[in-house]
Design a protein around this nucleic acid. Structure first.
Lengths: 149, 149
DNA sequence: CGTACTCCTTCAAGTAACTTGAAGTTCAAG
DNA sequence: CTTGAACTTCAAGTTACTTGAAGGAGTACG
């Protein structure tokens, strides 16, 4: 449909993708993006290909993939014999990691919750003269109370 | 009960607390731990106070508090007018952040899950000639398919 | 006393993934 | 032609450590 190529400044590309301009330059520096051609004045100029590539990168980052994983995914996306199974495997590994992290965070949430609750029960309303949280925390046992007896 | 003061090397302190020796030196460098007294030969030596302090730090870190928060908590723990309410507030803010993060991760998990599932449904068993994941990912819409039509 | 071995020392640099700041240039508008 | 936003580069800061190199201290054994 659209035969003419849109040209974007780095700022426009940033707005279009949600990636900040310093981050775009950073991506160029580490080779995630090819060196951008420059205008007469030396400013970077981008086209729709760059828009697509950076959007892809952004999506991957939002999925929580690390830069190196994004590199692999980008290669896969460019390869002529692109392998969806390999992509799936990368995502599966990442999903496993996310679930692991999620479990840890759930545990952490419960621990913090009980911490705060105990603080409220024992000390709400003013400074706790008898707060033993610090002694509790300095003991090697499982972390626990805040202001208990 | 025990009147004599145990003296610990940095390695023994590390083992007792679960904090690595380079990390202990790092904590000293950034002022979380006071400069340790040295033996004649120049090696650091620690006592039970250090053990308590470092254990406290470790517990806080395991709770996910940042170094600067640990600094505040340490100050509170030393202050004569220690304020349990302030401690509670710090923990409450942190808990809110953890819950926020947790919500994001749950969403991420669901998205990744559907990603992997779609890959399996459409492409399991070999390279996907028609895999459109990459075009999907390069489109600015909500991230989505892997190998669907 | 020597030697072997582990543990200790410092200092510098590396990690992830950017962000921030300084000082200066280019572009579009009025 | 001047203003001001957006662009340029380069260096350093961020978080919380980890890793590596080169060498000294402490302890056990013979």
């Amino acid at each position: 449909m659209n035969l003419h190529v849109r040209v974007l400044t780095i700022g426009a590309l940033a707005k279009a993708t949600g990636v900040t301009t310093p981050t775009i330059r950073y991506y160029e520096e580490i080779g995630l993006l090819p060196p951008a051609p420059r205008t007469a004045g030396g400013q970077r100029s981008y086209d729709d290909d760059d828009l697509g590539r950076l959007t892809f990168i952004k999506q991957c980052r939002d999925f929580g993939f690390g830069i190196d994983q994004v590199r692999v995914l980008l290669d896969l996306s460019i390869s002529t014999k692109r392998d969806c199974v390999e992509t799936r495997d990368i995502a599966q590994v990442h999903l496993d990691e996310v679930r692991q992290k999620l479990a840890e965070m759930r545990l952490l949430e419960r621990r913090l919750e009980s911490f705060v609750t105990r603080c409220n029960v024992a000390c709400a309303g003013g400074p706790g003269q008898d707060c033993v949280i610090f002694k509790d925390m300095a003991a090697p046992a499982k972390a626990g109370g805040c202001c208990g007896s």
